[in-house]
């Protein structure tokens, strides 16, 4: 990529808006996913009793089942949230930047 094009893009305020918004959003979601997953792993390592409780009076299903399924479903939902915003807002910003500089 030529230096002058790089300059033009980097001096465009929309470029900074895109980069900072997306980076913030992506890292928040990534950290959220790490917290959910490692939260789950650390509960297993340190507090098995919590996951071993019965889900309701007399049930054989334990709290661990919805918690485990919840981690799987949260992974899907978090990626969905990211795609939804990235494929609308971020892609629109990118298209606007391209239109202005190219």
């Amino acid at each position: 990529m030529q230096q002058d094009l790089v300059r033009a893009i980097k001096s465009n305020p929309k470029y900074h808006e895109l980069v900072s918004k997306r980076a913030k959003f992506a890292w928040i979601l990534a950290i959220l996913m790490l917290l959910i997953y490692y939260g789950f792993i650390l509960i297993i390592a340190f507090n098995k009793e919590f996951l071993s409780q019965h889900l309701w009076e007399g049930s054989i299903t334990t709290v661990g089942i919805p918690v485990g399924l919840g981690v799987i479903i949260s992974a899907f939902i978090l990626t969905g949230i990211y795609v939804f915003r990235a494929n609308s807002e971020f892609d629109r910003l990118t298209a606007e930047i391209k239109e202005e500089v190219l």
Binding site: M33, T79, Y82
Partner: peptide, 24 residues
């Protein structure tokens, strides 16, 4: 039993991370 689920979860959660930090 339950322990099998722990493996599955680990294999899945790499995907959101790839999505947020690497895919595009």
């Amino acid at each position: 039993g339950y322990d099998g689920l722990i493996y599955s979860v680990g294999w899945l959660v790499g995907w959101p991370i790839i999505m947020f930090l690497m895919a595009e």
